[in-house]
């Protein structure tokens, strides 16, 4: 079952979709503050991926969005207890599978 979900995020509408048993894939930019998820995809070239990897943002890592600055500012995430600020355009190219708080991640 494919269920489209619409989220308002500032001025843009972001469509997230839920596949089968409830995984919700969204970009880091459209996650809500406080939400956690697993990094599942990087939409970018090797250079982009390497820069993120070097800072500890890698596939299959748990990532928590701390918040977004006002007016399409950078996104702040927590990964392994480290805080990292990521420009919005980059954040839109990092795809995360959101985990519900109660199911946690495994």
């Amino acid at each position: 079952m494919l269920e489209w979900k619409e989220r308002k995020d500032g001025r843009e509408k972001i469509f997230a979709f839920r596949l089968g048993e409830g995984e919700l894939k969204v970009s880091l930019a459209s996650m809500k503050a406080g939400e956690s998820g697993i990094v599942v995809e990087f939409l970018g070239g090797r250079g982009f991926v390497n820069r993120l990897n070097a800072l500890g943002i890698r596939l299959c890592k748990k990532i928590t969005k701390v918040n977004t600055m006002l007016m399409r500012g950078p996104v702040i995430v927590d990964i392994d207890g480290m805080k990292i600020a990521i420009g919005r355009g980059m954040a839109q190219r990092i795809i995360v599978e959101v985990v519900d708080e109660d199911t946690a991640y495994g």
Partner: peptide, 8 residues
Amino acid sequence: SPELLLEI
């Protein structure tokens, strides 16, 4: 201009 990517 490139984007911010900064460890805090």
